[in-house]
Design a protein around this nucleic acid. Structure first.
Lengths: 248, 248
DNA sequence: CATTTAATGTGTAAAAATAACACATTATTC
DNA sequence: GAATAATGTGTTATTTTTACACATTAAATG
């Protein structure tokens, strides 16, 4: 940022000392900053999001995203990780900043600007840990209304997920380390809300060569078991787009 | 945001009154919030960005993005518009939020979290207005170093522009209302830093039918003049992607 | 143990999109 | 009026995407 509040109308600028800037920063009203996490999971062939019962009277009965105020001595990413860790017990989760929401009246307690992250976790691993009564996994497709502007935030995050999952191998983060191709396809179908052709899907993924056949089969399925695979992140390298997919 | 700072360790949550939350917001240290604008333009067949000489001693001689602190009573988008208006005299410019940067030590004056926007303007229209000596249009490709973390911010914004311009008709915002197809192609080539085949390019844009032939020709060009077109935003509607372009 | 069930696993051909490529035309400049 | 420097245009080859059907396998059932 170029601090110009006091000088942007005068053509002749002076070089400021750091302390001058500092007092400028001090003197301006600061703003409460929060981080909200849109935590996506995948279960029962559906895309889920982890919500908490709102603790605000105004939104009693409504669900909300998981968030917290950012400590001034804390990185934004760290704040997001902290919230995730507190709620799910998980470190080391795929996470991406989505957008910052700052409408004047989005929070009844006053101006609170919130930086939104989404993260993708494998529900299977963590089912046991989420005992908190106030937390619940909701079907993304069935959410109609949330506290604050959280429905809007969820919609925005979901759209970003839909875009990103088509360009990057994120879907694996929603699955256990070992997964069948059918499970992988289910993830895509759930996120993108479409049906895909099984043969074309398999062809596509085998063509990229980062699926590792681990020579194991599904267990305890009531039908012919499928092969299990790992995703090998090492083999993954972003392809350069040829020229331009102008494709509005 | 779900305010949980004081309660996230206790399983039993209580519904809080608004005033309880308010005091929570009050009591927490707030953070200085700024908006930075990455203002792109197009001139001399090159993608340009508008920079200002840093007014910080620490960064003397370096250039920086245009930004300002956000007033607590001001919307984020409005802050971005305000900065743009102050510097370029322009309202009503294409603008998009990019990302929020909040590294602890990104600003020497203390913690300043900044929400970044990029905008696309048509330089031709505004050349006259930018008289400010401290402002200059730089070739994006030639920028090596900026004040603060602004190089990183610029890189991130530029990458977002490259992605977005392939999926949405943004490029028109960098051109005058009347433009030739060659100019349009030049914009794409500059942004994406590639050469394209003229015939295929034209084919692609005529296939989408939002180019309006206004039956005028270029003037004052030292060669055969090309036809001029308008872009018709009304005719533009985002195509639904068929299924999924899984294309990592 | 034979049958049913519900999935997995596999290849080819048609259609669509993309990429490569050359020459006649036009206004300007000299 | 000759040279210049660009515009404007169509076809073919290649690649990518889509559509589509049947044999196989393990588990469950009676």
């Amino acid at each position: 940022m170029h601090m110009s509040k006091s000088s942007h109308t005068s053509q002749a600028q002076t070089i400021k000392s750091l302390s001058a800037i500092q007092s400028e920063v001090e003197s301006i009203n600061r703003i409460a900053l929060s981080v909200d996490c849109v935590i996506f999971g995948f279960d029962e062939n559906k895309l889920k999001v982890l919500l908490i019962r709102s603790d605000l009277k105004k939104f009693q009965g409504k669900w909300s995203l998981l968030g917290d105020l950012v400590d001034p001595r804390e990185e934004l990413d760290e704040a997001a990780s902290r919230i995730l860790k507190q709620r799910t017990g998980l470190d080391d989760v795929y996470m991406e900043q989505v957008k910052t929401f700052g409408s004047l009246h989005r929070h009844p307690a006053g101006r609170v600007v919130t930086v939104v992250y989404y993260s993708l976790i494998n529900i299977q691993n963590h089912k046991l840990k989420i005992l908190d009564n106030e937390l619940h996994w909701h079907d993304v497709s069935e959410i109609e209304d949330l506290a604050f502007d959280h429905k809007q935030i969820l919609d925005c995050s979901y759209e970003q997920l839909q875009r990103r999952v088509q360009e990057h191998p994120l879907a694996f983060s929603l699955l256990p380390k070992k997964f069948s191709l059918r499970e992988l396809q289910n993830v895509y179908e759930a996120i993108l809300n479409i049906k895909m052709d099984r043969r074309n899907f398999r062809k596509k993924f085998f063509a990229m060569d980062f699926l590792v056949d681990i020579d194991e089969m599904e267990q305890d399925v009531p039908h012919r078991p499928g092969k299990l695979y790992n995703f090998n992140y090492n083999k993954y390298e972003k392809k350069k787009k040829k020229w331009v997919g102008i494709d509005f």
